[in-house]
Design a protein around this nucleic acid. Structure first.
Length: 432
RNA sequence: GCGACUGUAGCUCAGUUGGUUAGAGUGCCAGGUUGUGGCCCUGGAGGUCGUGGGUUCGAUCCCCAUCAGCCGCCCCA
């Protein structure tokens, strides 16, 4: 094999591999359409940003200390000696675009969605790839917790629309950067006495990122930290009220949720609300999507005091979950309505077939013919494989008389019609 | 970045305790059967057994390395 796809990338095919139904373009289109439709319903507009950004946009916004920035970005220097990075996440580029294009000036409340490719240099796993498609929304301009609720509702709505029923909504509040400083100190004070008993990762996080000690999967660590201080107890009054209101909105909207005191987000820019939607069908990569509020990010990027909240979900994990749940997506009908079978003298019959194809297509009818075999059996099998509803059989005799055999593939009824009327005849079937 | 496991036909997989010519099903091609098929029958093409090295009279099989996949950790969507 001379050329292969780069490690931990994949191809989405028109005919999916036997074992990976999610690698089917029809499924991708369907999910994207559902997402667009949900976003439309909620009043979100689509934004598309470049796949590349200045490296500094990410190092500043995501945080230098995170793994993503320190070792997982696809960064290179271009011929003009600029450091560029394939975007590892969707939020910062949207923020950059809104600031640069001055969208906040004319849109005090700005609701956006995007579908785009993200890149992270990581070891692959089920549902985790180096190029990954993210679907997401961002809202700028208000700190109203009802807006947090709307974003969460939009996300839940999306999954429900797809038929996912085993989703769980986890929420938490990470407060402000200031309240987090106090909390981190309290957490470290709590853990210090048994620091030596924590796992290696736990000890590392104690120093590097105390919040993430809570997020461990190590059972011993979980036991030791069972009674650790909780973020909600350290929130500033404003964040606490915000969190209370969010919960009441979710309750009145009838959305079940669990307050997950261990839920923290990976990026530095999150404030107040953090949430995650967890599926049970993905093994260890069980986070279907997540998001949170980032009231300081726009300011950090030089756009002034504009609060924001967003949500992002991974296309691959979403599709894999749909597969695991056995959800059969209603994919668009790609079958041709008609398939032309030609027989006899090619010089006589082919030009007529090509002309008829052109005419049918001009009338909006999907149709095809066989360009390879000449035996009737093969052409018929081809029509059958493609799932054509009708075959149009054209031989020497029909050609001379200006007619064609119109055969219904399922009922096997066949009748002769004038070639000139074929398009009009088939149009009747093309919309139902 | 760390640790398991797996790489045999287009696809799904057998198999070889190291032995001459590596199999099945399915798909593909051809014929049976130049114009009414989807079934069936017969035949065919398709493999450097992931790649490179080592051990051996002999390696698809054992050993080492490497690449890729997959799973767990890390991180995250």
């Amino acid at each position: 094999m001379k050329y292969t796809a780069p490690p931990y990338t994949y191809d989405v095919l028109p005919f999916p591999p036997v074992k990976e139904a999610w690698l089917h373009t029809a499924r991708w289109r369907y999910v994207e359409n559902v997402f667009r439709e949900v976003c439309r319903k909620y009043g979100y507009r689509e934004i598309r940003t470049p796949i590349l950004e200045q490296t500094e946009l990410f190092t500043r916004s995501i945080g230098e200390a995170t793994d993503i920035v320190s070792k997982e970005m696809f960064t290179f220097t271009d011929r003009g000696d600029r450091s560029l990075t394939l975007k590892p996440e969707g939020t910062a580029p949207v923020v950059r675009a809104c600031i640069e294009r001055k969208l906040f000036a004319e849109h005090p409340l700005l609701k956006l969605y995007y579908i785009g490719q993200n890149f992270r240099y990581e070891r692959g796993q089920r549902g985790r790839y180096r190029q990954h498609q993210q679907l997401g929304v961002e809202v700028f301009g208000a700190v109203d917790p009802a807006l947090d609720a709307e974003v969460i509702l939009l996300a839940m709505d999306f999954y429900r629309e797809l038929g996912v029923i085993d989703q769980e909504l986890h929420i938490n509040s990470v407060g402000t950067p200031e309240s987090r400083v106090t909390f981190k100190q309290a957490l470290k004070d709590y853990a210090r006495p048994f620091l030596a008993e924590l796992s290696g990762e736990g000890q590392g996080r104690f120093e590097m990122n105390p919040l993430r000690m809570l997020d461990t999967k190590n059972e011993n660590d979980l036991r030791l930290l069972a009674d650790a201080p909780r973020l909600v107890d350290f929130l500033d009054p404003e964040s606490a009220e915000h969190f209370e209101k969010l919960q009441s909105y979710l309750t009145s909207a009838g959305v079940p949720y669990v307050v997950d005191h261990r839920l923290v987000r990976g990026f530095d820019y999150y404030t107040k609300t953090a949430f995650e939607i967890v599926g049970n069908s993905l093994g260890s990569q069980n986070a279907l999507g997540g998001g949170g509020r980032y009231d300081g990010l726009v300011d950090e990027c030089g756009g002034g005091h504009v609060p924001g909240i967003g949500f992002g979900l991974g296309m691959e994990r979403c599709l894999i979950t749909l597969d695991a749940l056995g959800i059969d997506l209603p994919t668009a009908d790609e079958r041709p309505l008609a398939f032309i079978i030609t027989l006899g003298d090619e010089n006589l019959v082919r030009p007529i077939a090509v002309k008829l194809l052109t005419k049918l297509r001009a009338a909006g009818i999907s149709c095809d013919m066989d360009y390879k075999s000449r035996k009737f059996g093969h052409q018929a099998k081809r029509a059958d494989d493609l799932g054509a509803r009708f075959t149009l059989i054209l031989g020497d005799e029909e050609a001379q008389r200006g007619v064609i055999q119109l055969r219904d593939q399922s009922s096997k009824e066949q009748r002769e019609i004038a070639i000139d009327l074929a398009a009009a005849e088939l149009v009747l079937f093309s919309h139902g």
